[in-house]
C-alpha cells in the first residue's frame, strides 16, 4: 500500500515539475520570439531555472521515500 502512495506522490511531484518546466519554456520562448537578439542571455537563464526546478523533483525523489518509512 505504501508503495502505491509513494508512486502517487512522485507522480504528483512530476506533474508539478512538468508544469513548472513548461512555464519556464513558455516564458523563455515568448521572450526569445519577442527579442531574438537576447536569445543567448535568455537561454542561459532558462537553463538555470530549469536546473532549479529539476532539482525540486530530484529532492522529492530522494527524500520522500525515506521520510515515509
Amino acid at each position: 500500500m505504501t508503495g502505491n502512495v509513494l508512486g502517487l506522490g512522485i507522480g504528483i511531484a512530476a506533474l508539478g515539475v512538468g508544469i513548472g518546466l513548461g512555464l519556464i519554456g513558455y516564458g523563455a520562448m515568448g521572450g526569445m520570439a519577442r527579442q531574438p537578439e537576447a536569445i543567448g542571455k535568455l537561454q542561459v537563464n532558462m537553463l538555470i531555472a530549469l536546473a532549479f526546478v529539476e532539482l525540486v523533483f530530484l529532492l522529492t525523489v530522494f527524500i520522500v521515500p525515506g521520510s515515509l518509512r
Binding site: 505504501t2 508503495g3 502505491n4 521515500p65
Partner: peptide
C-alpha cells in the same frame, strides 16, 4: 511492496 522500500533504492519499481 514493503520490499523495495526497505531494501532497495528502486523508486522506479512501478516502471
Amino acid at each position: 511492496m514493503e520490499v523495495w522500500i526497505g531494501t532497495s533504492t528502486s523508486w522506479l519499481a512501478a516502471a
